[in-house]
Design a protein around this nucleic acid. Structure first.
Length: 125
DNA sequence: TCTATGACTGGCT
DNA sequence: AAGCCAGCCATAG
């Protein structure tokens, strides 16, 4: 997505509101420790996104080209790898997680509750 | 411009 | 317990 998409007007108003929270989402995802996972809902809640968890997922889709955003560490509230089909092959996401020490069985993170890294808790101050 | 769809969730049946 | 339904809002057709 190019920044040429700016909707700058004579008013000097906004330029792509979405981009901003996409960046915020990336910032949070980047802070997820290796070997841990987080959920779309947790991120949405932490950033107070009215848009909700669905948009966090959308942000992940837009994060594809980025090698600095560990999207594989984001799963749904049940610990299921709901986005695995967005990684080259259906097994790629699982492989990435297992390579970090996160066991996955039947597309679900093993011992999920224990692996969960909730930003609104971990980053609380 | 309007409808359908979705890397989601929480609540109700 | 498993599944369906309704909000959520940005994109695509």
């Amino acid at each position: 997505m190019a920044d040429k998409r700016k909707l700058t007007t004579a008013d000097g108003s906004v330029a792509d509101p979405q981009r901003d929270y996409f960046e915020d989402v990336y910032e949070v995802v980047k802070q997820v420790p290796v070997g841990r996972v987080t959920t779309y809902g947790s991120i949405a809640q932490y950033l107070s996104l009215r848009a909700g968890a669905r948009m966090v997922g959308w942000a992940m889709t837009a994060a594809h080209g980025r090698d600095d955003v560990p999207a594989h560490r984001v799963v749904n509230r049940l610990g299921i790898l709901s986005g695995k089909n967005f990684f080259g092959s259906p097994t790629r996401m699982q492989e990435l997680l297992e390579a970090e020490g996160v066991a996955v069985d039947d597309d679900t993170v093993v011992d999920f509750k224990n692996r969960l890294w909730d930003p609104s808790i971990e980053l609380a101050s």
